[in-house]
């Protein structure tokens, strides 16, 4: 297994895709954290409130939902790229079993997902520091750790769906359309149809809500002096949660568990399907 994992790393690092997709993800994390941080530190506002508003929590979490798409695409190319270039034949001919080759792939891509998440956490922190300052260290670290886990799950989900679909273009396009269009339309419609308790169980919703719910929670837990004790603050938080469709959403970690189940289930299904697929 160690040999197959080493082979997978060589496959990844001898081509350019891994950094070509990592760069935009890292830039998005940086820009959104920077913007939120700078916005929260506008001088008049900060003077009125008695301190900077840690908006970077929420803007980072919002932008991160776009950054994760690059991790998802990277995952989706793992097996489909081999099918497309027909290197899968050699991979299967040199591995002890298909199951082992695919398991090595899942493991390797999980670690690359962690790399993506860590790099985005670093650039997000840098962006936040450029805008104003990094918000409360413990809270910020918590959000970063959650975002790294979400990225890992996205990459894993991408590997699974790619293995399931097989065709590279088909897998990448389906995933992008689903994430950027289908759920963004479906979620508000379902909310209006009285299915707001179902919506958090959709894969993209559960992923986005993991970081978003945590970010909103951390934002209101780390308000500057005057706002922290204000009697209107709980009402403002409810209002913001309504705008962000977080009203009926469970705790951030529950969302994380739901999304992890999605990623694991799709990863395993992809593994099972790819194990049986004839390579012709």
């Amino acid at each position: 297994m160690g040999r197959l994992i080493a082979a997978e790393y060589r496959k990844i690092f001898t081509t350019k895709l891994w950094w070509a997709l990592l760069i935009p993800a890292a830039i998005i994390a940086l820009v959104f954290a920077w913007g939120g941080s700078a916005l929260g530190a506008l001088q008049d506002e900060a003077e009125t409130l008695g301190g900077s508003l840690p908006l970077a929590f929420v803007t980072f979490a919002y932008g991160y939902n776009f950054a994760t798409i690059f991790g998802l695409i990277f995952g989706a190319t793992s097996l489909t790229g081999e099918l497309r270039h027909k290197t899968i034949t050699t991979s299967y001919l040199t591995g002890s079993s298909r199951g082992a080759v695919l398991a090595a792939k899942l493991f390797t891509y999980t670690t690359i997902g962690a790399l993506y998440g860590i790099i985005c956490a670093i650039t997000g922190t840098i962006g936040s520091a450029i805008g104003d300052e990094v918000p409360a260290f413990g809270a910020w670290t918590q959000l970063m750790l959650a975002s790294i886990l979400v990225m890992i799950m996205w990459v894993l989900l991408g590997v699974g769906v790619g293995a399931l679909i097989g065709n590279q273009v088909g897998a990448v396009v389906s995933l992008i359309v689903y994430v950027l269009v289908v759920e963004r339309v479906l979620a508000p419609v379902m909310n209006n149809q009285g299915m707001e308790n179902v919506v958090p169980y959709l894969p993209y919703q559960s992923a986005a809500n993991t970081t978003m719910e945590l970010a909103v929670r951390l934002l209101f837990g780390n308000l500057p002096g005057d706002l922290a004790g204000d009697s209107d603050t709980p009402q403002v938080e409810r209002g913001i949660r309504t705008v962000l469709l977080l009203n009926h959403v469970p705790d951030w970690w529950t969302n994380g568990v739901i999304f992890a189940v999605w990623a694991l289930v799709l990863g395993i299904i992809g593994w099972l399907v790819a194990r049986r697929r004839d390579i012709t």
């Binding site: 001898t14 081509t15 790229g81 270039h85 027909k86 290197t87 034949t89 050699t90 012709t280």
Partner: peptide, 13 residues
């Protein structure tokens, strides 16, 4: 139906 990644060098392959 055995192939190579077009951007990977022969040695890396």
């Amino acid at each position: 139906a055995q192939g190579f990644h077009p951007k990977r060098s022969a040695r890396d392959h």
